[in-house]
Design a protein around this nucleic acid. Structure first.
Lengths: 210, 210
DNA sequence: TCTCTTTCTGACCGTATGGTCAAGGTTGAG
DNA sequence: CTCAACCTTGACCATACGGTCAGAAAGAGA
């Protein structure tokens, strides 16, 4: 029974299996693309028989959709940093920090998202047209207000947002390239910190807010 | 015979067919990913029977490799802008212009490249380790010199380069998202110009070179 | 025109993939 | 303990895909 806070063994197993599958799927979709990913590979990586995947997720599309949605949630949540800030320096600084952290912690998710958008967003087009459009409109308005109040230089708010997305996500999506150019080694803690600082410094100075 | 400047009908056809196939392949690989792309679809788009593709390109991998190489060439060529410039403003300004123009003219190529790198660069890893590594080292050194000469603010040259790549390529790779946020319409000439200016303004001011 | 080489193509093949299913196991409420 | 609901899985199926091939067509040189 689930009426109390008690979770039954069934519920626990279900949750764990779903989580395992989603994690494996995220990785496989990121590394092979939707077309290149196979249910068998995801199953192996999750340590479950393939038929079991289809018990939890009827089709490959459905599984993929869940993965993409999961990422979108994380994405949106990072935007909170943007809100409760008095001005552009704090807001954008915190947003860059948050998004860089996501790039570091969820590189697979970022890649799946990038892949989805690059392929014309067949699965999450409606999100783009509703949630993301709203979000963008709101933040662009906020930035415009800061400009009007003289808190930053007059730049096109939308292109600034694109720049923030591009720059931060690049560290996840092109992580392999960066790693190669770093002598084949992943960025160290110190290097990640330097990356964050570089991005923040250039952009904040670039918008005349530092 | 081809000893003279004369091109035989055969050579002409060959060239045209290869070009058609490569163009179709670029588009299909960009829109579906390597795994999602099918030789049949590429063939249809090129207006040739599938078996004919295999006459010109033995395998799907070989065709894909050619597509990626083609892009890499264009990529490198854009870097010329970087060289014959007296200082950061001219060099980086011209580089941004060139790369934005590529994003606009070759969005499919950019996507294929992004996809390739995101999947761990299985095909062009050697290019990353040789040509790109050299190129990056050279430009980073150049930027460092400008910093030492007081022509720009002290920023990490590599992270600046990543920022340039990320920002400019974003307009190709995430073009669909940008289009959606633009009310479903592709960016107009005017908007592309504004994009270029925004990027240049923010980055050049960001590195204290404007 | 004749002949040799290159190009073209419909039909075909083996394989891998997404998805199904029926039978058997496990869990938990009453 | 019982039974219904839920979960697990090996075996199976239809399809679609990359790639092959034999022979027809077309071009180039003589």
């Amino acid at each position: 029974m689930a009426a109390s806070g008690r979770i039954s063994k069934r519920d626990a197993t279900r949750r764990e299996n779903e989580a395992r599958i989603l994690a494996a799927a995220e990785k496989v979709f990121a590394e092979a693309g939707f077309g290149g990913a196979t249910m068998q590979l995801i199953a192996d990586m999750a340590g479950l028989p393939k038929a079991n995947l289809h018990y939890y997720f009827a089709t490959k599309e459905e599984l993929y959709r869940k993965v993409v949605q999961q990422i979108f949630e994380i994405w949106l949540h990072a935007a909170d940093s943007f809100d409760d800030a008095p001005g552009p320096v704090e807001a954008i600084g915190a947003y860059i920090d948050a998004k860089m952290e996501i790039s570091r912690r969820h590189p697979f998710g970022s890649k799946v998202w990038a892949s989805e958008v690059m392929h014309g967003a067949p699965v999450i087009q409606d999100y783009l047209e509703t949630t993301l459009r709203e979000w963008t409109k709101g933040r662009a308005g906020l930035i415009q207000r800061w400009i009007d109040e003289g808190k930053m230089a007059p730049v096109d708010p939308r292109h600034l947002l694109y720049m923030l997305w591009a720059t931060t996500q690049h560290y996840a999506d092109f992580g392999h390239q960066i790693e190669t150019l770093n002598g084949g080694r992943p960025l160290s803690d110190r290097q990640w910190k330097a990356a964050k600082e570089s991005v923040k410094t250039i952009i904040l100075r670039g918008i005349g807010a530092a």
